[in-house]
Amino acid sequence: MMKGLKKWRLFSMLAALMFFLAACGQEQISTLTPRGPVASEQFNLLLLSTAIMTLVIIVVVVIYVLALIKFRRSKVGEDTIPEQVEGNVKLEIIWTIVPIILLIILAVPTVWLTYTQAEVSGMDEVDAEGNKTALTVNVTAKLYWWEFEYPDLGIITAQELVVPTGEKVYFNLKAADVKHSFWIPSIGGKLDTNVENVNKFYLQFDKESEGLKDGVFYGKCAELCGPSHALMDFKVKTLSREDFDAWTAAALEEPVAPSSDLAVQGEELFVNAGCIGCHATSAAGTAGGQGPNVATFGDRNRVAGYLEHDAENLQNWIQNPQEYKPGNLMPSAADLNGGDDFTQDELDALTEYLMGLTIENK
């Protein structure tokens, strides 16, 4: 009776596991639904390695089961010792040559893809006028947020990467504090960001993100980096080249003046409280800010990278960021406001101002 119960427990656990893993197929975040050539090549390599491992497992299991059946005690007797094959030249050649062949089948495409996907010479190619022909993005990972600099365009953003579809996008990856890892599961990766050196690679985005859940692909930090590692998310918005050029032109324009008296109060508070010392409000600037650039804050779909993008979460985050992302460097409201939390009126003003910082509506 107890053995039967244990089997049902195992079955129930596996059924529950399948239920939760079913969400892994969402195309905005799943390696199993590649949405770019880099991810597709990596996925095909995953299928190849899985097929080889499955073949080896099947062969071993079949031999094991046949040996159990053929040489079971009830058939050969209690005192019978099967013929020993130790030193059998043919068998030793077979189980030496076959693994070597399987390793070669797996190693050749692995090595070829490793070097092919690390080829970044296109990053430096220029046209007849000396302009770069490919888009390059400098990615800086910080505790616990991401900065994206477009060095050839003069644009700085944070937390949301915007790229064109149908072309290679090159990345320079580095970290400002500790080791992180840049990963967009549906598009390809991942690659470490280090403090002491710059890693380079490229990705290609084949599908516009507009039709996806939340309208973005999801990016993650894939290297344990501190207490808020699991919350170090970013989003990727993919646009047609025409829409990307329009986004670029809008990003280089001067920030739009606050459109309401409440937003004006928020801007004044943003400056007087010292927020402007860490957070730039223009996408046209220089990299290296202590806090994320908020020029595109109104366009984002998340607060702090993972909270729903609404007034309540923004105000909670401003009051006590350590409660939502332990270990991050943003001071609490009391630290900025002489020991007191912001009043509700002040929070409403800051919210109105920050939500109005947008590029898409210019």
Rank of each mutant, 00 (worst) to 15 (best):
Q265F: 11
F43S: 12
K168P: 02
S260K: 03
G356P: 04
D192M: 12
W247S: 04
T96L: 14
V120P: 01
P34E: 09
L191C: 05
I155V: 08
V56S: 14
K70N: 12
N138I: 06
A249C: 06
A273T: 08
W8P: 00
S260H: 07
G189D: 00
K174N: 10
N313F: 06
G305T: 00
E223C: 09
L102S: 09
V294C: 15
P331K: 05
V162P: 02
E312K: 14
I81L: 07
G4C: 07
A349D: 11
W247Y: 14
D310K: 09
A128H: 11
S12Y: 00
A222Q: 03
V108M: 07
L135F: 04
G4V: 02
E160Q: 04
T157D: 06
M123H: 12
G154L: 07
A175F: 08
I187P: 08
A175S: 15
G4H: 13
W247F: 11
E129F: 06
G166Y: 12
D345T: 15
A349F: 09
I63D: 10
F19Q: 08
N88Q: 07
D245W: 07
K174G: 01
T296V: 15
G338P: 06
A118G: 15
K200G: 13
T351M: 09
I58F: 09
V303Y: 08
A23V: 09
